[in-house]
Nucleic acid binder design. Structure first.
Length: 522
RNA sequence: CGGGGUGUAGCGCAGUUGGUUAGCGUACCUGCUUUGGGAGCAGGUGGUCGUCAGUUCGAGUCUGACCACCCCGACCA
C-alpha cells in the first residue's frame, strides 16, 4: 500500500518535473494567444490583430479610410524607394497630376466610366459658411461648382488631357511618366491595407508611337513588378493576362501578377495595362509619324499600391507576429542589453554602440534598445511581433566571454557567436532570411497549386483546400461567370508561362488549349 | 447596399428585474525589489457609459433615431 502510494507520488512528481518546461511554455503561449489570434483559428482576425498590434495602421474617423502609422509607412517608404529606382532605371520620370478630375473627362471613354462610376467621390461645392441658426457649419449653396469634380480613382483621363498638349510628333514620344499619389475608390466593405476607400499607389502612364512599343512597355513593367515582388517582397508570383471580365476598364489587355496567401486565397499584387489607342481617341491625342502621317498615340498604364503591405503580412507572418523580408524591413537588426545594474548596462552599452556603428557602416538598419522600463523578455517578444529579422542580445555572460546571442525571426533559432564575427554573421543572416522566406513562400505556392481535370475535384479544392487551381477553360465569359457563381473562384490570370496543353474545359467539357489560373481572391 | 453582432478608462471586459460615489484585468505614473523569453509588491492618475432625443422621482441599464466598428453576402486593386 505504502509502496503503491510512493510509486504514484513519484510518477506524479516525475510527470510534473518532466513537463515543467512545457507548462511554462503553455502559460506563455496562452498569454500570447490572447495577444494575437491564432492564424489557424481565424485568419481574418489574425490579420486584423497583426496590423493593429504591430502598429502598422489603424482605422480613422473617416469610414473606410486608414491611418498608416510610422512603422507601416516606413515599409511603404522602402517599397517606394526600391520601385522608384527600378522605374528610373527603365527610363521613367516622376510627375504629379491633380487630385480632381472634371466629371466630363470621365465620360469620354465609355468602358472607363462604366468601370468606375459606382465608386467615385464627387466634389460639388467649394465653400462652407456658418449655419443660419448658429449651430455649426454648412455647405454654402451659393458655392456650387458649375462642373462637379471627381476625386481620382485613377488618373488616365486627367493625364491624357494633358498629353494632348504635349504631343505633336513622333519626336515627342515616348512619354514615360510615373506618379506617386493617393486615389479614392468608394468601397462598401473595407479592410486595412487590402481594401480601403483611399489608398496610396504609384501609377505609370506612358505614350508611344507604335502598338509594338506600347505592348513591350506593358510587358516590361509587369516584369519589373515581378522582379520587385520576388526579390524584395520575397513573394513568388504568377504573371499572366486578365480575362475580359477581369481586365481594367478601358484597357485592351491587362497583365497582372498573382500571389498566394497563407489561407489559400489569391491576391493581385500589381497590374499593367495595354490601353491601345482608347484614351488617345477619347482625348484626341494625335501625332505625326516619320512619314508625315497622323495617327493616335498608343498608351499603357501600370500600378502597385499599399495593398502590397497586406500581401507582405499575409504571405510570411506567423502566430508570433510579423515576418518581414530584410530588404523591406524598417528595422533589420535590434540590439537588446541584459543587465542587473547601471554599471553592467554601461559596459554593455559601450559594446552595443560599437557593434551598432559597425553594422551601420555595413548599411544595416539597426537600433539599440536600452530602455529600462521593459524586461529583455518583453523586448524579445515585441520585436518578434514586429518582424525584425535579426536580434542581438548582450548580457553579463557575453561580456565575460566576448560573445553575443544572435536570433533570427524566420526560424526563431538562436546562436551564440564571438563579438568579432557579429557584423559578418548579420550580413549573411539577412541574406539567408530573405532567401529562406522566399523559398518557404515558393514551396507553399507549389504545394497548394492543383491541376484538376474533373469538375468535382475542382469544387472540392476550391471549397475545402483553397490555393491556386490550374484548370482547362473553354475561353468564354459565360463559363467563367458560371464558375464564379457556383464556387466564388475567378480566373486570376491566363499565365504567360503555363504552356499549351490539349484538354477539355473543366466546366463545359469543350476543347481547351491551355490551363488558366483559378482561385478565390482578395 | 442587404443579413447578423458589438459599442462602458489607451486596450480587453463585468455591471442582476432601472436605485448610493460605475467596477475588474492590463497599460500608464511614483517608489522599492528585479532583468538570459511577455517580472513582483505597494501606492496613484485616468470615464460627459458611441451620439442625440424620449420615458421616469431616478437611465450604463428601458424606447427610438443616428453614427462607428467587426463578421457574412453583392462590388473592387
Amino acid at each position: 500500500m505504502t509502496n503503491h502510494r510512493n510509486f504514484k507520488f513519484q510518477l506524479v512528481f516525475f510527470y510534473f518535473y518532466a513537463n515543467f518546461e512545457n507548462f511554462k511554455n503553455q502559460i506563455l503561449y496562452q498569454k500570447m494567444a490572447k495577444f494575437l489570434t491564432d492564424r489557424e483559428e481565424n485568419y481574418a482576425q489574425w490579420y486584423n490583430d497583426l496590423v493593429i498590434k504591430a502598429d502598422l495602421a489603424e482605422n480613422s474617423a473617416v469610414r473606410g479610410c486608414m491611418v498608416i502609422k510610422p512603422y507601416g509607412y516606413a515599409i511603404w517608404e522602402n517599397i517606394q524607394a526600391e520601385l522608384d529606382k527600378m522605374f528610373k532605371a527603365t527610363g521613367h520620370v516622376n510627375a504629379y497630376f491633380p487630385l480632381f478630375i472634371p466629371k466630363s473627362f470621365f465620360s469620354r471613354e465609355a468602358a472607363h466610366v462604366e468601370g468606375f462610376a459606382k465608386e467615385c467621390a464627387v466634389v460639388t461645392h467649394y465653400r462652407l459658411k456658418n449655419s443660419e441658426n448658429g449651430t455649426g457649419i454648412v455647405v454654402d449653396p451659393d458655392a456650387k461648382l458649375d462642373e462637379e469634380l471627381i476625386i481620382r480613382p485613377t488618373s488616365e483621363t486627367i493625364i491624357w488631357n494633358s498629353y494632348r498638349n504635349w504631343i505633336q510628333s513622333y519626336r515627342d514620344l515616348p512619354i514615360l511618366i510615373n506618379q506617386w499619389a493617393n486615389v479614392v475608390r468608394w468601397e462598401m466593405r473595407t479592410r486595412l491595407f487590402l481594401r480601403t476607400a483611399e489608398f496610396l499607389w504609384q501609377e505609370g502612364h506612358t505614350a508611344h508611337a507604335t502598338r509594338e512599343e506600347a505592348v513591350e512597355e506593358t510587358m516590361k513593367m509587369i516584369n519589373v513588378y515581378t522582379e520587385f515582388a520576388e526579390k524584395y517582397m520575397a513573394l513568388p508570383v504568377i504573371r499572366g493576362y486578365k480575362t475580359d471580365n477581369e481586365k481594367f476598364a478601358g484597357a485592351i489587355d491587362t497583365y497582372s501578377i498573382e500571389a498566394l496567401m497563407q489561407d489559400g486565397k489569391a491576391l493581385q499584387a500589381g497590374t499593367s495595362h495595354f490601353l491601345g489607342q482608347n484614351f488617345a481617341k477619347a482625348f484626341d491625342v494625335q501625332f505625326t509619324d516619320r512619314n508625315g502621317k497622323l495617327d493616335y498615340v498608343w498608351a499603357t498604364s501600370w500600378g502597385l499600391s499599399t495593398r502590397m503591405i497586406g500581401a507582405l503580412i499575409m504571405a510570411h507572418s506567423d502566430n508570433k507576429g510579423l515576418v518581414l523580408p530584410p530588404k523591406l524591413a524598417p528595422l533589420q537588426t535590434v540590439i537588446i542589453p541584459i543587465f542587473k545594474n547601471a554599471e553592467q548596462l554601461g559596459k554593455i552599452t559601450e559594446l552595443a554602440l560599437r557593434l551598432k556603428s559597425e553594422l551601420e557602416k555595413a548599411g544595416i538598419k539597426v537600433k539599440y534598445d536600452d530602455r529600462d522600463n521593459n524586461t529583455p523578455g518583453w523586448k524579445f517578444s515585441n520585436y518578434e511581433f514586429k518582424g525584425v529579422p535579426v536580434r542581438i542580445a548582450i548580457g553579463p555572460r557575453d561580456l565575460e566571454n566576448s560573445t553575443a546571442e544572435i536570433a533570427r525571426r524566420d526560424t526563431l533559432t538562436k546562436e551564440t557567436i564571438s563579438v568579432a564575427s557579429v557584423t559578418g554573421r548579420v550580413i549573411k543572416l539577412l541574406e539567408e532570411i530573405q532567401g529562406n522566406i522566399y523559398n518557404k513562400a515558393l514551396q507553399f505556392m507549389k504545394e497548394n497549386t492543383y491541376y484538376p481535370d474533373k469538375w468535382s475535384d475542382f469544387v472540392d479544392i476550391i471549397e475545402n483546400r483553397g490555393g491556386f487551381v490550374m484548370a482547362h477553360w473553354d475561353g468564354t465569359s459565360e463559363t467563367e461567370l458560371k464558375i464564379k457563381e457556383e464556387t466564388k473562384a475567378t480566373i486570376r490570370c491566363i499565365p504567360f508561362d503555363s504552356g499549351e496543353e490539349e484538354g477539355k474545359c473543366i466546366f463545359s467539357g469543350k476543347p481547351s488549349k491551355r490551363r488558366v489560373l483559378f482561385a478565390r481572391a482578395y
